[in-house]
């Protein structure tokens, strides 16, 4: 799941300043789950902006609230066509993908980000989210006992641990587990410690030409003799 965090109200007030009528657009998928941009947070932001406006006395904005199922698909955005006509800007509380898809769908209106898209991760417990995947496009989890050193090791090294590990924690942050110690312990449990003894060559970043695209559909031709 994509994890994001709502931007501070002051920053949001600055980006919406030029626009009188603003649509606060939530997304009902990842940012709902991580409590950054679902319907609840849209209402919260709406209230906060109203307070800021009322207390500073310089407010001219009017806000509309709406939350779509998923901002990253055009089809869900079709529901917004009428609402978009009534506003001067859209503040998307979707992730960076959502913002771009909305912008692509509604080319005549400014679309602004309301959250900082942070990482891909999981809910550790209520109210705590941890990063787990960097989308590197070259998954090595089979070698590392299901624990990703790219995201969970501060240095992202492929042959760990480094000399900065102490009591199972990372030198960069004493509260953070050393990913390579976790990998070692889990391999030990799985009786696969031989994987620790191998050398992993540096990854080839040339396999990741950006922006990436995955094409699943086959290139086929339907014709007289075909199909």
């Amino acid at each position: 799941m994509i994890v994001a965090e709502q931007k501070p109200v002051e920053e949001i007030r600055q980006v919406i300043a030029p626009y009188e009528r603003v649509l606060l657009l939530g997304c009902g998928t990842c940012v709902t789950v991580c409590g950054a941009g679902g319907e609840h947070e849209v209402s919260f932001l709406h209230s906060a902006l109203q307070v800021a406006q009322a207390r500073s006395g310089d407010g001219i904005h009017s806000f509309l609230e709406y939350t779509v199922k998923r901002q990253c698909d055009f089809e869900f955005l079709d529901l917004l066509t009428d609402k978009v006509k009534e506003v001067d800007a859209i503040l998307s509380l979707g992730c960076g993908i959502g913002v771009q898809v909305v912008a692509e769908r509604f080319s005549d209106i400014p679309v602004l980000p309301g959250v900082n898209t942070s990482f891909m991760g999981m809910a550790k417990e209520w109210g705590v989210w941890d990063e787990r995947c960097a989308a590197c496009g070259d998954c090595r989890l089979a070698d590392t006992a299901g624990i990703c050193p790219i995201t969970r090791c501060t240095k992202g090294i492929l042959n760990g641990p480094c000399a900065g590990t102490k009591n199972g924690k990372c030198e960069a942050n004493k509260d953070m587990d050393c990913a390579w110690i976790l990998i070692y312990k889990r391999l030990e449990r799985l009786q696969q410690l031989e994987k620790m003894r191998r050398y992993y060559p540096p990854r080839n970043f040339r396999v990741i030409p950006r922006p990436r695209r995955i094409v699943k559909k086959a290139d086929v031709k339907v014709g007289k003799d075909n199909g």
Binding site: G28, E39, A123
Partner: peptide, 13 residues
């Protein structure tokens, strides 16, 4: 139900 994102917040709180 259509809004529910199965985020498990209710289950956790």
């Amino acid at each position: 139900q259509d809004k529910c994102a199965t985020c498990l917040t209710c289950l956790r709180v």
